[in-house]
Amino acid sequence: MVVKSQIKFIKNLQQKKYRNEHQLFVAEGVKLVRELLESDFGVYGIYTTDLGLVKKSELVHLISEVDLQKMSGLKSPNKIIGVFHYPKERDILITDWVVVLDDVRDPGNLGTIIRLCDWFGIDQLVCSLNTVDCFNPKTLQATMGSLGRMNIFYTDVIHFLKNTTLPIYGAFMNGTTVYEEQFPENGVLVMGNEANGVSAEVEALIAKKIAIPQFGKSNTESLNVATATAILLNEIRRR
């Protein structure tokens, strides 16, 4: 039986300060919870209105629709909530391409980029300390479960870039067209903030600026950062 204190505790995990304090995060929805159950994330507890959705164990708790609503951060909760432990700290593995995010702030963008990295087989994602939390509920929803297959690091990206031996590419409006670039087998792709792009400090460390050419005649200033990441990763893998 789930008591009021547990409901409040899980509800509080919707906030970053409580997630960091307890090293726990909340995932909602059948697909997302099932995906994370197949990952290396440790399980704190599963709370569901239908025990048939997951394998039964002492960590699975049957709850009412009312309690689910109280725990949830969604307007329309989807039958199940999973509470998982933060992963243990790992080292960045430089065996392929690495994506670096320079202060991406929108949870949906980050979640989509995580999903894109998973799709294109890039499992190392390095985020600046001001990039949105990857355990943000909106980010988790956008990942569609890809979070469990990614190594995500929050660090000083300037320090990381200064110490990497890989060639560093960055997305800019005025760079060399991506369709003319010959990419190496391994490298770093830097994507910037939604409003301001790549910061000046990070830009100084980028060896090659690349751009996605505009073919239309609209006044669109730039592409969404997640959309741009998709195009650039496709070109990197294609070449």
Rank of each mutant, 00 (worst) to 15 (best):
M173G: 06
D67W: 01
T112V: 12
C117K: 05
I94W: 01
T143G: 00
H22C: 01
V202E: 03
L223P: 03
G187W: 09
N163M: 11
G82C: 03
R149A: 09
G82W: 00
L223W: 06
D123R: 15
S72L: 03
L32T: 14
N174D: 15
T165H: 14
V104A: 01
V100T: 03
I81S: 04
P107E: 09
E38N: 14
F25S: 11
K8I: 12
A207F: 07
T164S: 13
P87H: 06
E201S: 13
R237K: 15
Q182C: 10
T155A: 10
V202F: 03
N174F: 07
W119A: 09
N163L: 12
A211C: 13
L37K: 11
E235I: 04
F183V: 06
V3P: 00
G148V: 04
D118F: 13
E180K: 15
N12K: 15
V26N: 10
I92M: 08
T143V: 01
N193E: 09
R105K: 13
I236N: 07
K79Y: 13
L166S: 09
L116T: 08
G111H: 03
L36C: 05
R105I: 02
D133N: 13
I168W: 05
K209T: 02
M191C: 11
L125T: 07
N163P: 09
F135G: 00
L189W: 07
E58Q: 14
F172N: 02
L36M: 12
F135R: 02
E181V: 15
T227H: 12
T49G: 06
N224D: 05
L68N: 00
R239K: 15
V98T: 05
A228N: 05
L24R: 14
K217D: 05
F215G: 14
K162F: 03
S76R: 15
I7A: 02
Y18P: 09
F41T: 08
R34L: 15
P184S: 09
W97S: 00
T227L: 10
S39Y: 12
L166Y: 15
F25E: 10
L13F: 10
G192I: 00
C117I: 04
S57M: 04
D123S: 14
I94M: 07
M191R: 01
G108E: 12
I63G: 06
D96A: 10
V3Q: 10
S199P: 08
N151H: 15
K75V: 03
L233E: 05
S39V: 05
A204G: 06
M144R: 11
F41D: 05
A195P: 00
G216F: 08
T164D: 04
P87R: 13
R149I: 01
S218K: 01
F41H: 13
G29M: 12
V60P: 04
N12L: 10
